[in-house]
Nucleic acid binder design. Structure first.
Lengths: 244, 244
DNA sequence: ATGGATTATTGGTCGGACCATTGAGGTAGC
DNA sequence: GCTACCTCAATGGTCCGACCAATAATCCAT
């Protein structure tokens, strides 16, 4: 059955399989099969090179690829080596950021996706948020109030959204939210942003109150109002930047 | 303001910045700034190495990283080189797949996310799908009926979801859907899958009819019914695999 | 003009060398 | 006996120089 598409062309795509690709693939297979799992340590580079019968350079390119993909982490020194990582969404975020930079994803698409996503999240969080989640959200909102720099407050906002997503007890949403946060961060600029920030804090407290009351519709409405204000600001400043 | 978190530790994180990281960063910067854009060709490796004042090996590791990230594509031969790519969501999908493999994302999380996502998509598609989109969806459903192999039919299903997502006119949703499709593909197994596939085709036609009638609620309901059947199957086979 | 051989360019791989970091073990001094 | 320092081996990071393989432009013979 190897390489026999039933209906289309019968020519197999020509693949100049590079050594490092094959290596990556094999390691990924072991990962999917469970032979390798988070925390495991791969043999030393020089050793692996012998095992795969490739030069150390080729092997290193493979390891580098896996590291960039967030699968392993290379640590130097004695007792160092390549360690299989635990899942971190950073790479997904990075990949999405690259995608937006390379492509022509418009701000409109980003904000629309964000709004729709937060709509789901608020509904789920409303049903599932624990008291711990809610107090944490309040703590973050409170901390936002005390922060002095714009950047610090923005970091708080990102954390607020992340914790809210976590309250859904579904990590997929967390990934999506983190990605959009990172991308939209680049658009959040402008002189009047600071005053906007201030006014958003109260909205965050309100949302928590709605969540605690398990008032889904009110929570959704609050989030929508909240985001629409942010997006108005972003859009305005984006246009200003484009025209300048 | 450099490296002065106001409330936390005052020690800046020690970073042993590796050469290839710095190179990647610089190239990414040029990308974000627009100095580099899709289609551009980077200088030859040997040339770039001189420019960055690093060895060719280090430079190659940087290029390899960027290639794995989907930012550039290396092409061999005269007039070859590293070309800046147009945006492709493949890498995001790959990253998500890695994340799921590494982590312990449960099937429940995946299916829940999928359901919520498709809910949004159907609503948006209902409002925005053009006649072209709808006929394309029908064509795919029709093709599914004619395909003979399980794999080919699954490919059609993936395409159906992709086109549906495209009908929202928001590429972000397309990325999310593609990612989930790729991940959930691994779970779609079992002897009775073929009969399930057959019965799903009719559902796809129904959905298109609802979309054409702009009947949002009916469309959403159909999609929900559709996915719940799939998920029941997947869950059953997943349990069977786990117990075996 | 055409078509094949030649050549220059460029990424892919190789092997070997040295550096920098890190942890372990050993040693001197208290 | 404990601590502080030194030494050393392991390991990733980098460099160099070479050759291979694919590829497109060029040249040459027909």
């Amino acid at each position: 059955m190897a390489s026999s598409p039933s209906t289309k062309s019968n020519f197999a795509p020509i693949k100049t399989r590079r050594a490092f690709e094959v290596i990556c693939e094999q390691i990924r297979e072991q990962l999917a099969a469970g032979t390798l799992k988070a925390g495991d340590k791969l043999p030393a580079e020089r050793e692996l090179a012998v095992e795969f019968q490739v030069s150390r350079s080729a092997l290193r390119e493979a390891l580098r690829s896996l590291e960039v993909a967030g699968i392993i982490r290379n640590v130097k020194g004695a007792k160092g080596g390549a360690f299989v990582q635990t899942a971190e969404p950073d790479r997904i975020v990075q990949a999405m950021q690259d995608y937006v930079h390379l492509g022509d994803i418009s701000l409109g698409e980003l904000t629309e996706a964000r709004l729709a996503l937060q709509n789901i999240i608020v509904r789920l969080a409303c049903a599932r948020a624990t008291e711990t989640d809610l107090t944490e959200l309040e703590a973050i909102a409170e901390r936002t109030r005390q922060e002095t720099s714009v950047e610090a407050r923005y970091a708080c906002a990102v954390e607020y959204y992340a914790v809210l997503a976590r309250a859904t007890k579904n990590r997929i949403f967390g990934i999506f939210v983190d990605s959009l946060s990172a991308i939209l961060h680049e658009f959040v600029r402008g002189p009047d942003y600071e005053t906007l920030q201030q006014s958003l804090i109260e909205s965050r407290f309100k949302l928590v109150r709605h969540l605690r009351a398990r008032d889904e519709e009110a929570a959704v409405a609050e989030m929508r109002k909240h985001l629409e204000r942010v997006h108005r600001h972003v859009r305005k400043n984006s246009k200003a930047a484009a025209s300048g």
